[in-house]
């Protein structure tokens, strides 16, 4: 089982390699990837050095070009793909069919992975991408249960990678315009969701109010831990009942299901968190690496330790567990 780890900075990249990642994924410092946050990501030179460092340590580098090309500016994405190939990326993680077609045509030897943002959620969809673009691996959308994965795995003609730890999209990834509805900036077009540029916090009496664009996303009583106003993790009123309408402020953790995922036919486990600091990456990657080779009894102690690092300290199995729906 491979462990695929995030890196938003060269420092986090080295930590992930040192901690035993089988592959590290990262992106360029622009809108070609879905974590286009200020201060994150790699220049061409930084990526060249990172890939060399990974190679020396037997680690692979995956480059995420997983946003959708803006009409008229396709050259930005084509250039990024050309550079990723030239710099020696072991795989490219893509979401846009137009870009997949371009890469498959111009770089037929380049390994192509289907991003979670492509939302390939069933056998016919995945085999279409394998046949059309020679995709070698699919990152499954977080809409499938483990039983669903076990059912489709034998019928698809590529490897399966799944998210196991970190932030959790409630909506089918790559098919959500909630952020742009409120702010004009979206994961698909700009590589950002609920961008910091549109976030405001204000005090109102004893309460802290978090806003995204013109909308209140949450209100926190004095002493309540205040989270970042990611739109789908906000508290809203439905029929005069306030509550977390879409998802509580939790993060994903299905490392307890490693054996079931292995049996289901998964070949790589992915950790979310390119926006996280190097200390977080080091801790999570080294612990998960240990957990992968530990006996089931020892594993739970290792994983319990990690929960303290999770967003809101609460975790969920998300869609992997049927009752979540």
């Amino acid at each position: 089982m491979e462990l695929i780890c995030p890196a938003g900075t060269p420092a986090a990249f080295r930590e992930a390699v040192d901690a035993g990642a089988d592959a590290v994924y990262c992106g360029f410092r622009d809108e070609t990837n879905a974590r286009n946050f200020p201060g994150l990501n790699f220049t061409r030179d930084e990526l060249r050095e990172a890939i060399a460092y990974a190679r020396r340590n037997g680690t692979q580098t995956f480059v995420a070009l997983n946003t959708f090309m803006r009409a008229g500016d396709e050259e930005i994405w084509y250039r990024a793909a050309a550079d990723a190939v030239a710099l020696g990326a072991d795989a490219m993680i893509l979401a846009d069919f137009g870009l997949m077609a371009h890469v498959a045509e111009h770089y037929p030897d380049q390994r192509l992975h289907v991003s979670v943002q492509a939302s390939a959620s069933n056998v016919d969809a995945i085999n279409f991408l394998v046949d059309a673009f020679n995709a070698k691996r699919v990152v499954l959308p977080r809409t499938l249960t483990i039983a669903d994965i076990a059912r489709i795995a034998p019928k698809i003609r590529c490897e399966i990678e799944v998210f196991v730890f970190g932030g959790l999209c409630v909506m089918a990834e790559g098919r959500c315009s909630l952020s742009s509805y409120a702010t004009g900036k979206s994961p698909n077009m700009n590589g950002v969701c609920s961008p910091a540029s549109h976030v405001r916090y204000r005090k109102e009496a004893d309460e802290l109010v978090s806003e995204l664009g013109a909308y209140t996303i949450n209100r926190f009583a004095a002493g309540e831990a205040a989270g970042y106003p990611t739109l789908c993790k906000g508290r809203f009123d439905i029929a005069d009942e306030p509550g977390y309408a879409f998802e509580d402020p939790v993060s994903l953790d299905v490392m307890g299901e490693i054996d079931a995922l292995t049996a289901a036919g998964v070949s790589a486990l992915k950790v979310e968190g390119r926006q996280r600091g190097k200390a977080y990456v080091a801790e999570v990657v080294s612990t998960l690496k240990k957990a992968l080779s530990a006996k089931p009894d020892d594993r739970s102690a290792l994983l319990a330790h990690l929960r303290g690092l999770s967003e809101g300290q609460k975790t969920t199995s998300g869609a992997y567990e049927k009752r979540w729906r």
């Binding site: 959708f68 090309m69 803006r70 009409a71 008229g72 396709e74 979401a95 846009d96 069919f97 137009g98 492509a118 939302s119 390939a120 959620s121 069933n122 056998v123 016919d124 969809a125 085999n127 279409f128 991408l129 046949d131 059309a132 790559g174 098919r175 698909n188 077009m189």
Partner: peptide, 23 residues
């Protein structure tokens, strides 16, 4: 969705607004 795109190859069809056509 993507599965329909794959299955409809070779047969004239329409693409709905829920498929990501950005370029």
């Amino acid at each position: 969705d993507l599965s329909a795109l794959g299955l409809l190859n070779g047969k004239a069809h329409s693409i709905g607004p829920l498929v990501n056509v950005y370029n």
